[in-house]
């Protein structure tokens, strides 16, 4: 059998030792990857193709699949002219714009202010990741309670501190949108904060010191030295949040169900509602194909910027 040339380390050994018993055969690597590969094929890739397949059918819940009608591209044609789809896309983009802008600004600003290592930093960091660990369902429940029109704490404090009349937060289109944005900010700003602070603390201190010696002031240091140096981290964090905007739905499902109207219905939630409330599985599949395309496009952007498996594999 032709094997790879012998490893220089073992070749250079003075004594001819017993030949290493471990010579990875041609098939060994595949034995290692195939179990994982099969699960991912079955649990991720097959559903994606199944969604593609179903998107060509008119299939209602309750009917056997054989009775579903093949309707070609009709679902897609309908999708692109469906005002509801455009509406939820617009909601999703607006939601993404506000949450990501505020989370990035707050997270980066706080990280810059608080980057200096201090005693007890690890305690605070532990506290900051707590919101990220709470189940989305529970996050939705907590904030639904806080925003409750009658007994919600938010109405109480707005009234007690600012004299604002009680609002029906989750029953008004604009207020409900504000509520889900605020909830997202509470849960995800810590994520940006922690990632950015890790990036800042990994910066070589010489560079920052050098800029101090060169007379850069605090603002110049931030905008001309620090932020440019962690630019890739910022962009990746932003894109990861953007993907989450397209993946998330549970918090809204619990807080508002997407309403009132479709004011808090993100694309993912719309697919869910289409499939299981209006029971149009084929049409919901067509919309999920659109969702896959969007998410894969963002993933590709992330991968071209930072592929953890490409460059380092040559080391």
């Amino acid at each position: 059998m032709a094997h790879a040339p012998q490893d220089p380390l073992t070749a250079a050994l003075p004594m001819p030792m017993a030949k290493p018993r471990f010579e990875p055969g041609f098939l060994t690597p595949y034995a290692f990857i195939i179990p994982a590969l099969l699960v991912m094929l079955g649990g991720l890739l097959y559903p994606v193709f199944m969604a593609l397949y179903l998107s060509f059918y008119d299939w209602q819940i309750g009917l056997p699949l054989e009775d579903a009608d093949f309707i070609g591209m009709t679902n897609f044609a309908r999708m692109f002219t469906d005002p509801q789809v455009w509406e939820v896309l617009w909601v999703t983009l607006r939601f993404g714009f506000w949450t990501i802008t505020i989370e990035m600004t707050l997270g980066v600003a706080l990280a810059l202010l608080l980057e200096k290592p201090i005693r007890g930093a690890s305690v605070f960091r532990t506290i900051f990741i707590l919101p990220l660990m709470v189940s989305p369902v529970v996050v939705g429940l907590i904030w639904r309670y806080l925003f409750d029109a009658r007994i919600g704490w938010i109405n109480y404090y707005l009234g007690a501190w600012f004299g604002i009349d009680p609002q029906v937060w989750l029953g008004d289109a604009q207020l409900a949108f504000f509520a889900i944005v605020l909830t997202d900010i509470w849960q995800w700003t810590p994520f940006i904060f922690i990632i950015v602070i890790a990036g800042l603390q990994a910066l070589p201190s010489e560079v920052v010191e050098a800029s101090t010696i060169d007379g850069a002031n605090w603002w110049q240091q931030i905008f001309l030295v620090k932020l440019p140096m962690i630019k890739s981290i910022l962009v990746i964090a932003l894109l990861m949040r953007l993907i989450d905007v397209f993946r998330g739905m549970e918090v809204m499902l619990i807080m508002t169900g997407g309403g009132p109207g479709r004011s808090t219905e993100l694309l993912s939630l719309h697919i869910y509602n289409r499939a299981f409330n209006t029971q149009q599985l084929g049409y919901a599949s067509a919309i999920s194909v659109l969702l896959i395309v969007i998410v894969f496009a963002i993933s590709t952007a992330i991968l071209t910027m930072a592929n953890p498996m490409k460059n380092k594999s040559d080391v």
């Binding site: 690597p29 990857i33 590969l37 991912m40 649990g43 991720l44 890739l45 097959y46 559903p47 994606v48 199944m50 969604a51 179903l54 699949l65 993907i243 397209f246 993946r247 739905m249 694309l267 993912s268 939630l269 697919i271 869910y272 499939a275 299981f276 599985l281 919901a284 599949s285 999920s288 969702l291 896959i292 998410v295 894969f296 963002i298 993933s299 590709t300 991968l303 592929n307 953890p308 498996m309 490409k310 594999s313």
Partner: peptide
């Protein structure tokens, strides 16, 4: 196929649960 495997693993990382919902239900 190592590079192909690595890249496709990274691509499917972000498959949204909403996309799995209908096919899983159908399955």
């Amino acid at each position: 196929g190592r590079v192909l495997m690595a890249n496709s693993t990274l691509m499917v990382r972000m498959v949204p649960p909403a996309v799995l919902a209908v096919p899983a239900f159908a399955f």
